[in-house]
């Protein structure tokens, strides 16, 4: 592991009309880490993703990416630097077939520049590359699924499509906003290896999840948010053992259940 963090949050604060959605949140993210972020509903997890990726402007605080301050840059520039994100409410291009959905990120300046994709530039090639990426994300190449309209895809495939859209950018960091939610146990089980594969490929991940059991399988660090404040950060084991977390987040009856998972 590298000593220089790839992403640093410095007192990131976001207020919505007096409500602190995020309050002085600071943490470091190291290369090839999988950082899990958990917290009750409305604790500011999505807001955190939005602040990092420039989709909303933070009230104050700063985000450093490889030492560079990116907190005032527009969203597309941040994505262009290699910070990709998924959306909690999935946002495919519904009027396009699944594989055409990936032509858009492949058309981006970053994809053209990093060009690691076979062929890269020319027309037609992008379609082939899309199918490759989709296959990597678990779309069966020989089936009709990659050619289906995104509006007809089931949730499981839409989540994969969200990840594939990120992957097309050859990102350094992917922020996943609840990719497991809404999926069945078996679907999640088939997603976990994909996530692990991304880590092996050297992509750093931030995963926001409510499904703690699956999250703790893959995450090596966990951060707990509550009312926009960082409650604790540590390894999954440390977080589980923390008393504040039990009180604030898990609630009394849920504790045993979660502990057995961890």
């Amino acid at each position: 592991m590298n000593n220089q963090p790839i992403l640093q949050m410095r007192g990131v604060t976001k207020t919505f009309g007096g409500i602190f959605a995020l309050n002085e949140v600071s943490f470091d993210l190291f290369e090839s880490d999988i950082l899990g972020i958990i917290g009750p509903n409305g604790s500011g997890k999505t807001t955190l993703v939005n602040c990092i990726t420039g989709f909303i402007k933070m009230t104050y605080g700063e985000v450093l990416f490889r030492g560079k301050n990116i907190s005032r840059r527009p969203a597309y520039k941040i994505a262009d630097m290699g910070i990709a994100r998924t959306f909690q409410i999935m946002r495919p291009y519904f009027s396009l077939p699944a594989y055409k959905n990936l032509v858009i990120p492949l058309f981006s300046p970053r994809a053209k520049r990093t060009g690691g994709w076979r062929g890269g530039g020319k027309l037609g090639d992008r379609n082939a590359v899309s199918i490759d990426i989709l296959e990597e994300m678990g779309f069966e190449r020989e089936s009709y699924v990659p050619y289906k309209m995104a509006s007809n895809l089931p949730t499981g495939y839409l989540k994969r499509l969200e990840l594939a859209r990120c992957l097309a950018l050859k990102p350094e960091i992917i922020l996943c906003d609840e990719v497991f939610s809404g999926l069945s146990m078996s679907e999640i089980a088939s997603m976990v290896p994909l996530i692990e594969r991304l880590q092996i490929e050297g992509i750093t991940l931030i995963m926001i999840e409510h499904r703690l059991r699956e999250l703790f399988q893959v995450a090596n660090r966990v951060l707990v948010l509550n009312f926009g404040e960082k409650l604790i950060e540590g390894t999954p084991g440390e977080v589980m053992a923390d008393k504040k977390v039990k009180e604030a987040y898990f609630g009394s009856e849920k504790v045993e259940e979660v502990e057995t998972y961890a």
Binding site: A75, Y76, R91, F94, S95, I104, P105, S108, R165
Partner: peptide, 14 residues
């Protein structure tokens, strides 16, 4: 895509 879903376009670095 811009018409369909501009947020995803921004997230794609465009």
């Amino acid at each position: 895509a811009v018409m369909d879903n501009d947020q995803a376009v921004r997230a794609s670095g465009i």
